[in-house]
């Protein structure tokens, strides 16, 4: 923002204070913290959480991949065999704690995403019709998992699941995460549908298409970006969720965040930083995908050129 020529000295100083302030917030809070601290420290050769002299002088010997190796080794029957021959792969796949957690995270997140996307999209189709009686109330109910504190949700589910035998099961976790994820799907899809020009449906029908064809060829392509970004939100929610897992899972269903949680509470080793780095990389990837989807949806709706 260029400053006009007429501003006086105080306004000029104030403007620079403001810009510096924003720059600092961006640098420290949004960039520095997750990326600039966690990422380099994950390559630390020493088991410390601070930059060593060697790291600061960019001595290659001060950096290593040992914590990334540790991700695989931790829990293996024979960690010394890592990268020699082929048998270590089976060992890591079966025994490594982090791989176990990653498998759980992915299975649970995918399950929860499918469940919440299906239920949420269908519900959004109904919710977008103004004729639906009690629409505001229903919407409030469907959104409520976002507002109710996670601790209340988790403990309530803990009691219910203990009674009906869903505690400590994959299905239980998938259901729990689907509950937490559906509001995102409902919101994004209803938002897309509210920008959706209903006369397109009539146009499609007047051109001779059956309702099913209209849905497939007209509605679906236009709301797909909304569904996908809702699904991504649901996936992200499940992948990042830890409180429900703490209450509803035992060791067998441990997810990555749950594993990090115990790591942080018990003994902190830089392995957590290596895992964190991988997660940061994943979230950047996810964010890029969401951004591209958003642009595509705007383009489709003719909002931007």
């Amino acid at each position: 923002m260029a400053l006009p020529a007429y501003v006086d000295r105080w306004e000029r100083i104030w403007h620079w204070v403001y810009l510096t302030f924003c720059a600092l917030v961006f640098l420290f809070l949004f960039l520095l913290l997750p990326v600039l601290v966690v990422v380099p420290l994950s390559f630390n050769a020493e088991p410390y959480f601070s930059f060593t002299e060697g790291m600061l002088t960019l001595d290659p010997a001060a950096y290593s991949l040992r914590w990334y190796r540790d991700i695989l080794q931790n829990g293996m029957a024979d960690p010394t065999q890592l990268f020699s021959g082929w048998s270590w792969i089976g060992d890591a796949w079966a025994n490594s704690q982090w791989i176990h957690a990653a498998k759980n995270s992915i299975v649970i997140a995918i399950g929860a995403t499918i469940l919440s996307t299906l239920l949420g999209t269908v519900a959004a189709l109904g919710l977008s019709q103004s004729i639906l009686p009690g629409r505001r109330l229903i919407m409030a109910l469907l959104i409520s998992p976002m507002i109710v504190p996670i601790i209340v949700t988790s403990t309530s589910l803990y009691f219910l699941f203990s009674e009906i035998g869903l505690a400590n099961t994959y299905l239980g976790l998938i259901v729990a995460h689907a509950i937490l994820g559906t509001p995102f799907v409902v919101i994004t899809v209803t938002a897309t549908l509210s920008g959706f020009d209903r006369s397109l449906i009539r146009a499609g029908q007047s051109l001779g298409a059956s309702p099913l064809v209209v849905f497939q060829r007209v509605i679906m392509p236009l709301i797909l970006p909304g569904i996908l970004s809702g699904a991504l939100f649901a996936f992200g929610t499940s992948f990042d969720e830890v409180v429900a897992v703490i209450f509803l899972a035992d060791y067998d269903q441990r997810t990555i965040p749950r594993q990090m949680w115990s790591g942080l509470r018990e003994q902190i080793s830089p392995t957590i930083l290596a895992v964190a780095t991988i997660l940061v990389a994943m979230s950047i990837l996810l964010l890029t995908v969401v951004e591209l989807l958003r642009r595509r949806s705007e383009r489709l709706r003719g909002l931007t050129a």
């Binding site: 601290v37 942080l264 964190a276 997660l279 950047i284 969401v290």
Partner: peptide
């Protein structure tokens, strides 16, 4: 949005590290 999408635990870890 990046922190929005970065795991909560990662961010908390970052603060502990710092």
């Amino acid at each position: 949005l990046l922190p929005f999408w970065t795991s909560l635990l990662v961010r908390t870890t970052a603060w502990i590290v710092l």
